Computed example of a mutant assay.
Amino acid sequence: MLASLPAFLRIPLAIALLIVNTIVHVLPLFALTFVKLLLPIHAARVAMSRVLVALAESWIGVNSALFDLFTRTRWQVEGLEGLKRDGNYLVLCNHQSWVDIPVLQKVFNRRIPFLRFFLKSQLIWVPLLGPAWWALDFPFMKRHSREELARHPELAGKDRETTRKACEKFRHMPVSVMNFVEGTRFTRAKHDAQGAPYAHLLRPKAGGVAFVLDAMGEGLHAIVDVTIVYAHGAGSMMDLIAGRVRDIRVHIRQRVIDPALRGDYENDAAFRERFQAWINTLWAEKDADVGRLLEG
């Protein structure tokens, strides 16, 4: 019913309800995070972390319900079978738009452990959302340009150290670690500049995936390989809210983690070459999946 409202009523109402939902969930999230910081007992802090995750899952659930109410977006999701709420997963996905995040949250909410993304450090300053992501143990990564690294080589290992610390914390809780392997959102200009060998994807960046696999060790149960396709283009978050993202197709494939995928990516040249070959093969398969989903 709400999806049939005129756009001048529907869009402001949807935005208002999304904002209210965010405030209703984020304010108690901040209060409970403060309580958690004061708790002296580790077991109590772990229990409080579960409460925070439950709040976040409720927040996502209401957002997803609002998108369903206010839009006529068609969803095609393949491959959810066999996923476990108490499993530990590394989730790998192609990246086209900010819309990817609510898509992943809707598809996986309460089906696998709460998704945690590696975020750019600047995003901590996003009002309400940045502090909320921090409270939920999202790792923040400080990206450095080649020029900065040339001037300050000691910065090269900072992201790896952040990854290691985050994964150490994740080893003690059910978790789904999310990685957009391309490292940036797809555009045709970026694709052409890279000379990417794929029709629909940018080149994958292997290092971050290798660091997480090594740092998490046997704590990870499987890789969840996700391919997202927007049949009529990805659009923006406003396009999603306005109902202009009409057709979303998601393909999910669980992959066994071969022990050979764990190793010293930075210092072992032979391992690095094998790992890059593996992820390039995975990306070639994903490229074919994108083509199939676009035709479907």
Rank of each mutant, 00 (worst) to 15 (best):
G291L: 09
R244P: 09
R110L: 02
V229S: 04
L293F: 02
R151H: 12
E81T: 06
E295I: 00
M173V: 13
G243R: 12
L104F: 03
N88W: 02
D239P: 06
L69I: 04
V103Q: 00
A47L: 08
A14G: 15
P102C: 01
A189I: 10
F108D: 02
R151K: 15
E168N: 04
H152L: 06
V103E: 00
A56I: 04
L2S: 10
E147W: 09
K120Y: 12
D159E: 14
V103K: 00
Y198H: 12
G79F: 00
K158H: 14
P6E: 12
L90T: 05
V91M: 09
V24H: 07
H42N: 12
S64I: 03
D268K: 13
K165L: 13
F114M: 09
Q96H: 14
G243N: 08
K205E: 07
M1D: 14
L123I: 15
V20T: 15
N63K: 03
Q96S: 13
V99T: 08
H191F: 09
P12D: 13
H42W: 13
G233T: 08
L5I: 11
A222Y: 07
L39K: 12
R185A: 07
T71N: 06
Q276R: 15
S49D: 11
Y198R: 10
L201V: 08
L149F: 04
K36G: 05
R50F: 05
L220H: 09
V26I: 13
C93R: 02
L66S: 00
H172P: 01
P12W: 11
T184F: 10
I248M: 03
S145N: 09
